[in-house]
Amino acid sequence: MAHSKTVPNTNGSKNIYRLMFNEFKKRQLGYSTIAIIAQSCLGSAAAMALLMGGMDMVLKMILLFFVTIFCMAFNGAVLAQLKPLTTFNLLILSVVFSSLVIIAHII
């Protein structure tokens, strides 16, 4: 009886990403619907935090542009029914960027 060697998985973040993507892919329609609402609210909060902040107007508008583009890119990917990997990556990009903007303005 032959035994295959098992290599321990030391990259936990890649494993979590893969598990989340597989779950998203299985139930893409439902998760996309919920994600549009959630990431749009998060993007709106990031835009509000930017506009209420006291930073330079040019930097504020550049960051606001990117928050808006990332949120709209995900919404467009869902509406265009792009591949699940593209849609999932745009969701992560949008949520991470909006969260970083909010956290930067809280600190």
Rank of each mutant, 00 (worst) to 15 (best):
I69A: 15
C41H: 02
V7E: 02
P84T: 01
D56R: 07
M52T: 02
K60E: 00
V67Y: 01
L90T: 02
L63A: 01
S44V: 14
L100K: 01
I37G: 09
L100S: 13
K25S: 10
K83V: 10
N89P: 03
V101T: 09
V7K: 02
A45G: 05
A38V: 11
F70D: 03
F65L: 05
Y17K: 15
A49S: 15
I92P: 11
L59G: 01
L64S: 04
F74A: 04
L85N: 03
L82M: 11
M57H: 00
P8H: 05
Y17N: 13
M55Q: 02
F65I: 00
N75Q: 15
A47H: 10
N11P: 04
G30N: 02
R18E: 10
V78M: 02
L82W: 04
L90C: 03
F97G: 07
L59E: 03
M61A: 06
F21D: 06
L29I: 08
N9P: 01
L79C: 15
F70E: 10
P84H: 10
T6Q: 00
K83F: 10
T6Y: 05
L64W: 01
N22R: 15
R18V: 14
Y17W: 06
C41Y: 04
F88C: 11
L51W: 08
L19M: 13
E23H: 15
L82N: 06
F66A: 08
L29P: 00
G30M: 01
S44H: 12
F66M: 04
R27M: 07
L51I: 00
M52L: 04
V96K: 05
V101S: 02
L79T: 07
T87M: 05
N11E: 13
M55N: 08
V67A: 08
G43V: 06
M57R: 11
A35F: 05
L93P: 10
T10D: 12
C41F: 12
G43T: 05
L19W: 14
T68R: 00
I102H: 05
I36D: 09
N22D: 07
L100N: 10
I92V: 15
C71I: 11
G54K: 07
A46K: 01
L82V: 03
N15R: 13
F24A: 13
F66E: 05
E23L: 02
L85E: 08
A49M: 08
I36L: 13
V78F: 06
L59Q: 08
A46G: 04
C71V: 15
L42F: 09
A38I: 01
K25C: 03
